[in-house]
Design a protein around this nucleic acid. Structure first.
Lengths: 338, 338
DNA sequence: CTTGGCACTCACCTCGGGCGAGTGCCAACA
DNA sequence: TGTTGGCACTCGCCCGAGGTGAGTGCCAAG
């Protein structure tokens, strides 16, 4: 086990490196932090920390920089989450309060996160799977053509075209609309399949084909993978990444374009509390030199989606975690109100 | 006026520079293009072209590179639009045909454009202002709370919450729904305000407040600025921009995040045919070293939105213009079918 | 108007030396 | 055993010098 002072040395190294972006040496450390010991002692501690794999030197005769393992220890044991200041909180709330619809909420959240953290922000749309149905609407566009509109408690709206096997009268349509809503309104998505199971039986034989088609479209909509959308912002912050530019930034931009990758990434994160994935902890290769800080958010007590930021492993973890947590909290409030 | 050969020299310079990304000298030119004259002659022509401002040298004793003015002449007079090959056309069609809804069409279009041109693709959602109304739906969510859903002929769906001044009965709702649709279904957006003008008069006094609220919300939706959404893709292609990285890429990423800027940019482009804006021709400063190739597309004969790509001024104009034009054409077809 | 010749310019590369931050080791000390 | 000052060593970085070569401008001849 590492002694208390060695942990302090590691903390100091992380803080300095995050600030200066340059390898930090023993002398500089003792000057900037009053550790109460001499550079020589710090050197010994550094050697020990390096043996354990928490720090590394880019080359001999250079200072040390934290490794992924070092950041991990820092995040887990040495640093808390830095809470937002009251003015910051007010700014967050004001900014989000102006949103007019779900798209706007997500868009504003992305901008906000990007600005607060000066990193790339990623916000997942509230997932359908954990939401409840607010309303199902059926519109007749043509004699044998319907539109299905699904509205969730998070304000999300999905629509689908349906080609019916047979013409479907206005009265049947009204009937189906009413029965469907009385069954599923306010229910969780996962319950819907069970609830609508016996619905076709209530209809005339000639209409059952259409009813079944509508129901299967509805069920498809509930599980369809394109339910998992997300919005990205603050990519311009990538330019602050480092000096070795194109090589670092390229794979990150590519990863950001592959929404599947990002969704998987967010999905892997824990359900409660702020999750931090550092460097190589990210399965996706292109993000091996980045860290992902994410957290779930939701309208009620339960998380319905994730949001987070992607930045260099050399980032201000306490601040970033604080910002991500605070934003998630306020977004949840906004969703609950609407 | 420039002689025919000098124009050929300019064309050769543009082509070579686009290919190699390096200033092109007189000797290399005569070797790679059989102009039938010696390097010395080409040098004289180059001097003339430089006097006229079509080309420039980065520094003495280097080759020449085209200026914005040079590219402009190239695009206007020296280069046509390179048509897509049949296999490319098929690929475009196949790729777009798989789309399931409007979002998907736009998403696929962005990916396609980015891949074809290897540049940043921008696709504007079909604008509401030039579309026609397919259907207006009203849902009662609570006694005094309605949801307005607007469906356009381009498959776009907009929804708005409405808080009514007074409770609104189901029969009134059905009545309003029916009257509204009979008035506006199939009509152009610009006609809607006139068409619904006298609608409140058909209702009881107690309902008129709500009807007016609904109508004003509808009219707002028609003109609201957030109607102008767009999707961006292929930002990873920015890494191929040039060697002087961060400086070039930064403002471009920032511009791409400012959707307002992009929308303005697209808006300024001509309504018919492929429009090319080269370097400083773009009003927005951050895009001074990029060119924007854009074109309108639409479901019928008329353009309802724009799409295009953003790339370095040093780009393959004929190829890019061909790709942009072809994609726009096929997207139009897809929209017309759905 | 075109062409070959020629002197000139200047970015780019490479090489070598000096500098200095930072290290590892060691001997002395508490 | 842990801490400290001293000291030699390493090695990336900066800088200036010299060589190279692509490319130019000018000029005189065809």
């Amino acid at each position: 086990m590492l002694s208390e002072r060695r942990l302090q040395v590691l903390r100091a190294i992380v803080q300095d490196y995050v600030g200066t972006e340059e390898p930090v040496g023993s002398k500089a450390l003792t000057e900037r932090h009053n550790l109460g010991v001499s550079p020589a002692t710090v050197r010994n501690d550094m050697a020990a920390l390096e043996d354990e794999g928490f720090i590394a030197q880019p080359h001999t005769s250079a200072g040390r920089i934290p490794t992924d393992k070092g950041y991990r220890l820092f995040v887990d044991k040495l640093a808390g989450v830095k809470p937002m200041t009251p003015p910051e909180r007010r700014a967050i709330q004001n900014f989000l309060d102006g949103a007019v619809d779900l798209d706007d909420v997500v868009a504003r959240t992305v901008r906000l996160l990007a600005q607060l953290t000066r990193q790339v922000a990623v916000v997942q749309y509230p997932s359908l799977t954990r939401s409840t149905v607010r309303h199902v609407e059926l519109l007749s566009l043509a004699p044998a053509r319907l539109m299905l509109v699904l509205i969730t408690d998070t304000g999300r709206v999905e629509q689908r075209m349906i080609d019916c096997p047979a013409p479907f009268g206005e009265t049947s349509l009204a009937d189906l609309r009413a029965r469907l809503n009385s069954k599923v309104a306010g229910r969780r998505f996962s319950d819907v399949p069970r609830l609508v199971e016996d619905l076709p039986e209530a209809f005339d034989l000639e209409d059952r084909g259409t009813v079944s088609t509508v129901l299967s479209t509805l069920l498809e909509t509930l599980v369809e993978e394109n339910e998992e959308r997300l919005m990205i912002g603050g990519t311009a912050n990538l330019t602050r990444f480092g000096h070795d530019f194109p090589l670092t930034i390229r794979p990150v931009l590519e990863a950001l374009e592959e929404q599947v990758v990002l969704l998987k990434l967010l999905g892997e994160a824990g359900d409660s509390g702020v999750t931090v994935r550092i460097g190589h902890e990210n399965a996706y290769e292109g993000l091996n030199s980045t860290s992902v800080v994410s957290v779930g958010y939701g309208s009620g007590g339960e998380a319905v989606a994730k949001l987070g930021v992607v930045g260099p492993t050399r980032m201000d973890y306490p601040g970033t975690m604080g910002a991500v947590r605070a934003v998630a909290r306020y977004v949840g409030q906004i969703l609950a109100e609407s």
